[in-house]
Design a protein around this nucleic acid. Sequence first.
DNA 1: TATCATAGGTTAAACGTTTAAGGTAATGTT
DNA 2: AACATTACCTTAAACGTTTAACCTATGATA
Lengths: 341, 341
Amino acid sequence: MKKTKLTLKDVAAQLGVSTATISNAFNRPDQLSQAKREEILSQCKKIGYSGPNKAAQILRKGTSNIVALVLADSIAYMVSDPVASTFIKGVSSALQEQGKHLLLYAGDSKSILDVVDFVDGFICYGAPRNNKLIDELAVSPKPVVTVDFDIDNKPSINIDNEDAAYQVASSALNEGDSVAILGLRLIDSPSTCRVYDSPLIGVESSISHRRLDGYMRAAKEKNVAISKERIWHLPESGRSFARQAAKEVLTSSPRPNVVLCMSDIIALELLHMALEMGINVPLDMKITGFDGIEEAERTRPRLTTVCQSSAEKGVQAAQALLNDMEEKTMLPFELREGETI
Amino acid sequence: MKKTKLTLKDVAAQLGVSTATISNAFNRPDQLSQAKREEILSQCKKIGYSGPNKAAQILRKGTSNIVALVLADSIAYMVSDPVASTFIKGVSSALQEQGKHLLLYAGDSKSILDVVDFVDGFICYGAPRNNKLIDELAVSPKPVVTVDFDIDNKPSINIDNEDAAYQVASSALNEGDSVAILGLRLIDSPSTCRVYDSPLIGVESSISHRRLDGYMRAAKEKNVAISKERIWHLPESGRSFARQAAKEVLTSSPRPNVVLCMSDIIALELLHMALEMGINVPLDMKITGFDGIEEAERTRPRLTTVCQSSAEKGVQAAQALLNDMEEKTMLPFELREGETI
DNA sequence: TATCATAGGTTAAACGTTTAAGGTAATGTT
DNA sequence: AACATTACCTTAAACGTTTAACCTATGATA
């Protein structure tokens, strides 16, 4: 058992050199002769000194190799969402390659102040549920990269959600259609409900808003009207919310013959429920999704959706952060025609 | 724009009190009069001092509120596994409740030395792929809680994997059966293959070893022999590895009529493929899983498996860490009889 | 009235490093 | 031979806090 943890000072004393030299041996090889360096390193190993204390380094150097990933919602929810977890996957592999550590941060937290002093930067995936965080991130002294939404003057990674939504809606819609939209985080309600005249929440650059805009533009072009009582709000993309919304939509009258869903999870639950009710998809009801998750390829009929690479978004976000990129990046997406329209 | 970040010293000077007093105003309300405290706090807010620098606190206090979650494999893989992500979910909610932060740490990392100085403790989910980490954790100066395996003298959270495996195997097996086992991380190979005579890897307390023991005990009791060439190794529980292994098993001859799988993901891929090949489950082939994931309830026939609550494991692990528990905890499991045996 | 707690501060020494700025001897330059 | 460089170390001042130890009125106690 060690008596007490060795410090740089102890080691310096024992080896009869200055603390600076020990420090340099570990951090700046060019500052001392190779012979001395090797000698020091081997001595350190021998006496059980495993290198400079990281906590002290964080304070002194002002850098920790920790990157905070600010998730839109609670960690608990985000980690179980296939799209989000694929994103996390991308982020983590890019970070690991550079020896950076990943701190998961919930978007419903009170404030980023409890970590801002020691993290090296923030990757922000989706507009945090707590709007205050956005304001704090906007003035953060540490670098910030946003994904799936924007903050002025901060780099971001996005796809053109408006265009993607427009395209998928355009290929699904025809004049005379009766349309419903299953949207995400549109209004301020903790449960699934119709939007009606509730004010829309969140930043204008959020994916929900952009997608809604795209849907509406396509609808206008095709001359179909979508009233706000045909737009549903889901607080998140979980299966239980999705099932609830699906049920409401399927039992609403008149039953829509086109349903535009803002995520594949939502679309898939709707699809399953519709099929169970004996509704013919796409003859009686067309369904579109969003994201292009793996599961959407395995269903019969295959879901028509918009594919984007969440893993790639993660990688790009990490790289943007680590390389101090300043631009806002637009990633490609791809319409995947399945058999649900 | 701020000129330069305010420090405690600056604030103390501006308010004409000592740094200790400012510090106490934030950390130890009992050390100064309530009037002064409120005065200080409101002044701080006014001049834009948001509280003591966390990096400095980490060094000085020796605690950071950061807990490292050491995953068995790479973060990228773990986050996409439904069982692991449910566990993470449990951990994160328990931590968030206590204001702790979650650092994801990959089990295939070189060493924990780069974080041990600043984290408050380790939750270790599954035996890390890199064995060196286990040794380091065993002598870590920071608290450690292991899950799904054990380290001497460290608290742990487990289910009785041996017994669970024994039970599920017992209910599936009958004398004369031809049995195959689809196991996880049994030998040192990066790809799916039969075990044959390769030496088993990893700690004896790992879930794989315990489950294998349980299977074998049941087999012995039922008088069925399982040779090592009927045991497959999968490097991880991913779907692609599972499909590959499923294919090998289904085309092996003689084709087994019972397949014991060490995870539901593996079992489900096998089930799908078997059904596609026109094999009758359970008449021609019985299949058992492990874990009790949600997806396993939705398949037809429903999978026979062992249910455990990964979320609960996460919560318990976090609590054990935060409360300095010392004991090794055994959580309950439940046999879920589906229609695959 | 002399004595003793106590409340509400202050002082200064840590916490364990990094890194400018200096110093010195050896090497290179003219 | 005088001078400029360079290579290699050391000194000491940060980094921004926390906290034990100490101080000083003020009110309570005997």
